[in-house]
Design a binder for these strands. Structure first.
Length: 155
DNA sequence: GCCAACGTTGGC
DNA sequence: GCCAACGTTGGC
């Protein structure tokens, strides 16, 4: 079982939005980066846990925990011309983009990005590397444990 | 709104 | 296969 960090713009889907979904589950659609797609396709498995990170917002940081709830399967939005994630170059016979389902696990008091940066134990986190823009990144077990034990408080 | 970093595209 | 142009990300 692995650990992840998944970015979401709260205007789009916040941790509260996830908690309010039917089954508290959402298809993690819209990933249009090959590295992030490959993480979902090759390494994510149901039961994996992920920090739910709020990005591109006034208070960026970890807002909760989610659980991977499915294997990767074709992302429906790539075939929907009305979607902003529509990809005219992707054909149903050979879908280019995949997504997993993600289920709400728990909400945390926001752990701000600046707080994460303060801790030497987290210095190697992918999220914290210069210009790291990947929307899905692996989290080392030690990093996961450190954040849970030291910084995480239920909200 | 700015801007640096990075990924993707497409002409050659 | 190179590489310049362009688009996107995301913190500030």
């Amino acid at each position: 079982m692995r650990y992840w960090l998944m970015k979401s713009e709260p205007d789009d889907c916040s941790i509260d939005d996830l908690a309010a979904m039917p089954q508290q589950t959402v298809a993690w659609h819209g990933v249009r980066n090959y590295q992030a797609r490959n993480f979902m396709r090759d390494s994510m498995r149901p039961g994996d846990l992920a920090f739910f990170y709020h990005s591109s917002c006034p208070r960026p940081g970890i807002a909760g925990i989610a659980q991977v709830a499915s294997l990767a399967y074709p992302d429906a939005s790539q075939f929907d011309p009305a979607s902003r994630f529509f990809d005219p170059k992707s054909v149903p016979e050979q879908p280019r983009w995949l997504n997993v389902d993600v289920r709400f696990e728990r909400k945390l008091e926001l752990i701000p990005l600046l707080e994460l940066r303060r801790h030497a134990a987290l210095a190697k986190m992918r999220l914290l590397q210069p210009a790291s823009r990947l929307s899905i990144t692996p989290v080392a077990p030690e990093e996961w444990q450190f954040i849970l034990a030291t910084l995480a408080r239920d909200a």
